[in-house]
Design a protein around this nucleic acid. Structure first.
Lengths: 210, 210
DNA sequence: TAGATTGTTAATCGATTAACAATC
DNA sequence: TAGATTGTTAATCGATTAACAATC
């Protein structure tokens, strides 16, 4: 339909490029090449150049890419050059691990509220945040202008929580629940499910050694 | 090369079908169709039938698929019809959340050992397991015939841990560290990185509302 | 039988890659 | 200048889908 639409598969590779550039920068490297990035990710250099070419020209012939500059450009493209406020639903073990996982901050996200429905958890402190009653969801979302939420509740509650999030205006959901969620088509959903990775690896393993 | 090789993208969809079948079974449904599975996953019915056809014929014309039977068949195909022993490296918040995450057990995996290098964590109990010294890695791997390990250590230690795992014969790694790992080509690696999902969703969000 | 749904073929669509001119 | 590497085109490759016969 839209001739300028960029394939989603390309968009999904950009965070990998960003992750690799961060690694290179941490190692003190200031210039890189499509070849080098590709080697680290197991992606062809041509593909990386092609992906970048959807958005502009970021390199220099004969030299490569300035690590810092390309990083900034990718952050702008993905709109993570400034911070998104996130709400985290679920203050169990998983929720706590997510809260302490520092990569979110580096990646352009800030978890500004944790909510749970469990009386025992509400009011407890986790890091800098106090666990709020899920009943306060509408106010929290409005106050912090939250468009993205993370679901880290038990499987059985996930669909209900997702529906509630959509009702209060959340536009994108990162779900750790291992079930497919039924949501309106305009809501973006990403799943984190370690089983998908594990079960696709076992296909290739030698069962005789088990 | 191999004319019978099944595309990896197909293999990666099978766990999603399995996940959906489990959901249907939990809801007490005994028969389903490619249409129904597809609707839940946002995948076309044709694609599901095509994917399954790589492995055989599992349905009945006019009726659909027996939920339990198709589940069993997919488990066999993915080799998760019996249990794989896993080692978990890293006993921090993330490691503890992973240990308590029950889906692994349902999915054909059992975490049989947790290891860490931190003196403060070694010896501590998490659920049924006691945290072991990472120095014991070779014995642990051998004793439990472990082919798959989960990395849940700080980013800076991840590559080192991965190298150590490969050295003791681990064949597949599920890494929660947000960096690309450099490993021999024959080692299977899957990454769990929530940033990839988040950063690809923000591309599509309206920044004016931020 | 009529309706539903599978399994499969062939056509289409889209993504990857090979090749190379441009140029630093 | 020679060497390196980008950006881009066109060719290739592979994945998805439309269509439909088979059949429960």
């Amino acid at each position: 339909m839209n001739p300028l639409a960029i394939p989603e598969i390309v968009i999904r590779r950009l965070p990998l490029y960003l992750r690799t550039l961060k690694l290179l920068q941490d190692q003190g490297q200031s210039v890189t090449s499509s070849q080098e990035i590709g080697d680290k990710l197991g992606i062809s250099a041509t593909q990386i150049r092609k992906d970048l070419s959807y958005f502009g020209e970021f390199g220099k012939q004969g030299t490569g890419y300035d690590v810092r500059y390309l990083q900034e450009q990718l952050q702008q493209i993905l709109q993570v050059d400034s911070t998104w406020n996130l709400a985290l639903i679920g203050a169990g073990d998983l929720g706590r691990a997510i809260l302490r996982y520092s990569s979110f901050e580096e990646g352009g996200f800030s978890i500004v509220a944790v909510l749970d429905r469990d009386r025992d958890k509400i009011g407890r402190r986790i890091g800098k945040l106090q666990v709020l009653d899920i009943a306060k969801l509408p106010e929290v979302i409005k106050e912090h202008r939250i468009q993205i939420a993370i679901i880290a509740v038990p499987t059985n509650d996930a669909q209900e929580v997702a529906d509630a999030l959509v009702n209060v205006g959340v536009k994108a959901i990162l779900s750790y629940a291992p079930i497919p969620l039924s949501l309106p088509a305009h809501i973006r959903v990403q799943h984190i499910d370690p089983l998908v990775g594990l079960q696709s690896m076992t296909y290739y393993l030698d069962p005789s050694q088990r």
